[in-house]
Design a protein around this nucleic acid. Structure first.
Length: 468
RNA sequence: GGUGGCGUACCCAAGUGGUAAGGGAACGGUCUGCAAAACCGUCAUUCACCGGUUCGAAUCCGGUCGCCACCUCCA
């Protein structure tokens, strides 16, 4: 069975076949590291992680490259004249380099917590200036550039397929919707390859055209080619990149090489919060740290995303995350009581699971198979083997469920002290129950609940568990 | 102005021609001194609305209404 993926380039689901089997070469657009990664970023990177794990599940050897955009590029409305990297650096009293490293580190720490496999190659734009210059020179040699006082510009009119990928209508009034960063551009959709004459910009390098810095789009093309060759199997990113960033990547890459830049374009839809766009100004921009502060384990967020499709916008609410965490905790409870796994997995469940994933990464259907298996009357040891195999893709830490449950307990605010105290009360209550003093026993349960625990009378004696 | 998406139970959500997955919540039962946990069961004759095609539609076609995102650095 082959993996089927929705390809933005054709707007249809296609069968995946790599150019250099058994290797699958994936390039993922990484983050611009001027601020904290938020849960919207995680949605996108979890999607590319599921893609990567699914391909590995299917037997491909995945070579995964992700960039780090550590050169600032654009002016934001309120900070006229400086780019975000410079603005952020000034605000925090750091150099742009220090700022980039700080948020880069935060980003990779964050994605590790939701079990995203770190790409084999992480490449920084600032460390590949030479590759970018060389690519611009190729474009210049092929006649796709022109120079203005603002820098070297890509001439989109020389590339007749420019509008195809995003289905842009260039004869419309696109000029009203694309900021005129450079009054000397021939067309509003033309874009910078190398920026000149920005003396206030902190990061600057020498180039054949003068001192300056690379345009945003060129870094991805240059680094993707450096590490994966001129033709990629899959290029991933957020859906917002289709009209500008990926359109420009395709233009500059294909005009330089004459080859198809990427066979598959896989885009993740955006995450909304409470039915609307997530943004700092609305106060609904959340990070993984915010989730943890509210008592959620990072994997609850991963489970939440897996419940729906990467290709559909998802609406984040705290209630929805709560439901996801409850469901995940129940799976962990189940797995923590499984015996040692058998040697052979249950092929029928596994193939149903596989079919779901190969159908354009239908994680929602894949999770349904997980629940079906859990509820089945199959042999527990075989269930364990099968579930752990599925977890190669899901990455919900099923094999270490017991530890995860303990972490969750700690996270939910159950301190060692209060748990100890609750347990002592529970033991006193047990004595009262033996004496049939139920009124007093119920009073003690009230006290235990006030501490944030619920009592469970088990054959092995009373146990306490954090509420909620 | 352009591009794309969405509207399925109380909530999240899968399903793109064959008669509504899954999860959460809720409710009923078993168990229990009472609970908790666990287990069993119940929970959309119906998929925004109207019309059409079809033996058959949540799925296809036409129309209507509503919601959202992107087109500017953006995951």
């Amino acid at each position: 069975m082959k993996v089927q993926l929705y390809n933005t380039a054709s707007r249809s689901v296609e069968e995946f076949a790599p150019i250099h089997p058994p290797e699958a070469r994936i390039y993922s657009c990484g983050m611009t590291v001027y601020s904290f990664a938020h849960i919207g970023h995680l949605k996108t990177y979890i999607a590319s992680d599921i893609l990567r794990r699914t391909l590995e599940f299917a037997g491909y050897e995945v070579r995964h490259v992700m960039n780090v955009t550590d050169v600032g590029h654009m002016t934001s409305d309120e900070d006229e004249g400086d780019d975000k990297m410079d603005v952020g650096a000034k605000k925090e009293g750091l150099s742009p380099w220090e700022l980039a490293r700080k948020y880069e580190e935060h980003f990779f720490n964050t994605i590790r917590e939701v079990n995203i496999i770190r790409p084999q190659v992480i490449c920084r734009a600032t460390e590949h200036i030479q590759e970018q210059i060389e690519l611009i020179q190729r474009l210049e040699k092929n006649g796709f550039t022109y120079i203005t006082p603002a820098g070297v510009v890509f001439d989109s009119n020389k590339f007749d397929r420019y509008a195809d990928f995003a289905r842009l209508q260039l004869d419309g009034n696109i000029e009203n919707f694309r900021t005129a960063a450079d009054p000397d551009r021939k067309s509003p959709q033309d874009f910078s390859l190398w920026v000149l004459n920005k003396p206030n910009h902190v990061m600057q390098w020498d180039s054949p055209w003068g001192r300056g810095y690379p345009g945003w789009h060129i870094e991805c093309s240059a680094m993707a080619m450096r590490y994966l060759g001129e033709e990629l199997d899959i290029h991933t990113g957020g859906i917002d990149h289709i009209p500008v960033h990926h359109t420009n990547e395709i233009a500059q890459s294909e005009c330089a090489t004459g080859k198809t830049f990427a066979r598959f374009w896989v885009h993740s839809a955006f995450l909304n919060v409470d039915g609307t766009k997530m943004s700092k100004s609305l106060g609904n921009l959340y990070t993984l740290d915010d989730c943890r502060a509210k008592g959620f384990t990072p994997l609850a967020l991963r489970y939440f995303f897996l419940q729906s499709s990467y290709r559909k916008p998802i609406n984040f609410t705290w209630d929805a995350l709560e439901a996801a965490q409850t469901a995940l905790a129940k799976i962990w409870e189940f797995c923590s009581e499984l015996p040692a796994p058998s040697v052979e997995p249950l092929e029928d469940y596994l193939s149903e699971f596989r079919a779901a994933l190969y159908d354009d990464l239908n994680t929602s259907a894949a999770l349904a198979v997980v629940h079906k298996l859990i509820k089945s009357d199959a042999d527990p040891a075989a269930k364990a083997r099968t579930l752990f195999k599925m977890d190669d893709v899901l990455a919900l830490d099923l094999a270490t469920s017991r530890t995860r449950l303990n972490d969750l307990r700690t996270m939910r605010g159950a301190t060692q002290d209060s748990e100890q105290k609750a347990l002592e009360l529970a033991q006193q209550r047990q004595e009262l129950r033996k004496q049939k003093n139920f009124a007093e026993a119920d009073r003690l349960r009230g006290e235990i609940e006030a501490l944030g625990f619920t009592v469970m009378d088990t054959p092995a004696g009373p146990q306490v568990k954090p509420l909620g």
